[in-house]
Amino acid sequence: MDRFMSLDRRALLAGLAATGVAAGAAALAPRALARTEPGTVLARAIPSSGELVPAVGLGTWITFNVGEDAEARDACVEVVQAFFEGGGRMIDSSPMYGSSQAVIGHALGRLGAAAPFSADKVWISSGSRGPAQIEESRRLWGVSRFDLLQVHNLLSWEEHLETLFAMKAEGRLRYVGITTSEGRRHAEFERIMRAQPLDFVQVTYNPVDREVEERILPLARERGMGVIVNRPFQQGALLRRIGRRPLPPWAAEIGCQSWAQLSLKFILGHETVTCAIPATTSVAHVRENLAAARGALPDAVMRRRIADLFGTL
């Protein structure tokens, strides 16, 4: 089943209202489609349900941890507003991220009717304390339930997965996943992917960190799991290294106007990736990131070219 789809916001909402229809549409989509209509945001189907989600989400690691700083909180509200206005939907956080969950809740409260695809994590060594942490996270977000809960960095994953699958069975959670970052514990990650009926895995992937291409991404495709990509810019380090170097002229062939877009296009060019979640505090960067989910995506040759280029920087 191909998971490339393009849609505007109206189509997205219609698809969400009837995930069965969306699943069918995804199944009928042409396999090699790697281009979205101008002005529309690329969306991909979650393999386990067929539900469509915009392929660029919003991470909150560091960027949304602003505490009680009113001015910084207002800036985060503007970021979330621009994210929704630009067609984004998936917001990802964790209890590990300091005040990020509370700041998301503040933004959602201010924006009223906004309906994110809420992706959070459970991160506590005690399995028995997982449910309490999840409930606290839900309270901070101000949502009735999470769309996706993931076991953060595989911490106490056996106990937490038991909790999450039970929540899903009871209808208190829609999707279950696990996360890792920067290539850690991939062997154990694979074992869990083979043994557990996960909806999502979250990994680090970008033109420089490509280890997941070897086994994790093929396994996710084989097992029908969605893939969320964290640290698409290596926490900004990738872009800082590049500095003010000019983009190569051929980047324009896939509509890239920045290095960030080139990295995101590379990531989204892998058809197994469901959603990349760059984090930012800038409205301009949110728009720039979402723009990477519009227009052409690189084919295999172009992706190799992008990876080679980043590898030399």
Binding site: I62, T63, N65, D69, A72, Y97
Partner: peptide, 15 residues
């Protein structure tokens, strides 16, 4: 070391 940093410099200094 940076993996343990939870906040941005701007947020820290604004404290």
């Amino acid at each position: 070391l940076s993996d343990f940093l939870l906040f941005s410099p701007r947020t820290y200094y604004r404290l």
